[in-house]
């Protein structure tokens, strides 16, 4: 049985999976160690915030707007059948704020940022820029990884809040066109439906999403294999791995929210 090549292949796959998880954990530990090491690269951090946050805004905004639009358009007929169109704002807002907004925006963010960071650090590794940095007296982990992970951690929540607002606006546009609901009434209903149990856990989990995306992107790039193929692989696996991690975190977050907020 142990000589079966298929079995051995699977065994290796599982083994490498666990090795990957272990390496990522070490990487995370190193992040938490280095984050307190002086000097903190504040300018680079701001620059990364701009790259990660502002530059993703258009993508996130368009995605969020369409999501709001589509959810409303597709749920409306069902609610109309019950004569319950007036429940539209509360339904859409709860689903967007709680789940759809954070997850979809984090996924687009992962697609953009994890691959971007993975490719950037990967190519820096391959062309020895990371070595050059170390030789010129700058701790590359501090300069490259800490700043990027922090930027992703802090920018994703901002993006999600803005994205949620845009998605709700998209939903309002549909409601206004189809049902002639005023802006004030719509958002009154939205905030009537929302509770702290919706918005606080949803916002907290986006910090973890951002952290996971930044960390995986940096991890894959930082330990990139030599050659251009390695860079491509780093970018690709950064997206795949971080998206997967995102759903795992989301699952855990929903679990915890369930316990603490009794929904």
């Amino acid at each position: 049985m142990f000589r079966n090549p298929g079995f051995m292949l699977k065994l290796n796959l599982i083994r490498s999976f666990f090795i990957e998880i272990g390496e990522l954990s070490y990487f995370a530990r190193r992040f938490f160690k280095e984050i307190f090491k002086k000097p903190f690269e504040f300018n680079e951090f701001l620059k990364q915030c701009f790259q990660v946050g502002n530059r993703s805004f258009l993508l996130v905004g368009v995605t969020a707007f369409i999501i709001g639009l589509v959810i409303t358009l597709q749920t409306r007929p069902t609610l109309e059948e019950f004569g319950a169109e007036s429940w539209m704002p509360s339904m859409v807002s709860i689903s967007i704020i709680r789940e759809v907004g954070p997850v979809i925006i984090a996924l687009t963010f992962a697609g953009r940022i994890a691959s971007g960071i993975g490719a950037e650090l990967g190519s820096m590794r391959v062309t020895e820029q990371i070595d050059a940095m170390e030789v010129s007296g700058t701790n590359p982990f501090n300069f490259l990884v800490v700043t990027r992970v922090l930027a992703a951690t802090l920018m994703l929540p901002v993006l999600v809040i803005l994205g949620d607002a845009i998605a709700l606006y998209g939903s309002y546009v549909v409601e206004n066109l189809k049902g002639d609901v005023s802006f004030q009434l719509y958002f009154n209903k939205v905030f009537n439906a929302l509770e702290f149990g919706d918005i606080i856990p949803a916002t907290i989990k986006t910090f973890f999403f951002g952290f996971a995306i930044g960390l995986v992107g940096c991890f894959k790039g930082y330990y990139c294999e030599k050659g251009t193929v390695g860079v491509g692989k780093a970018a690709n696996s950064a997206v795949v791995f971080s998206s997967m991690l995102l759903f795992i975190i989301d699952f855990i977050a929903v679990f915890i929210t369930d316990i603490f907020f009794e929904i």
């Binding site: 502002n54 805004f57 929540p157 901002v158 803005l162």
Partner: peptide, 14 residues
């Protein structure tokens, strides 16, 4: 310019 934009971005979110 970048810092300004970033600031606006974060403040609006907050």
């Amino acid at each position: 310019n970048q810092k300004l934009k970033l600031g606006v971005f974060v403040v609006i979110g907050l």
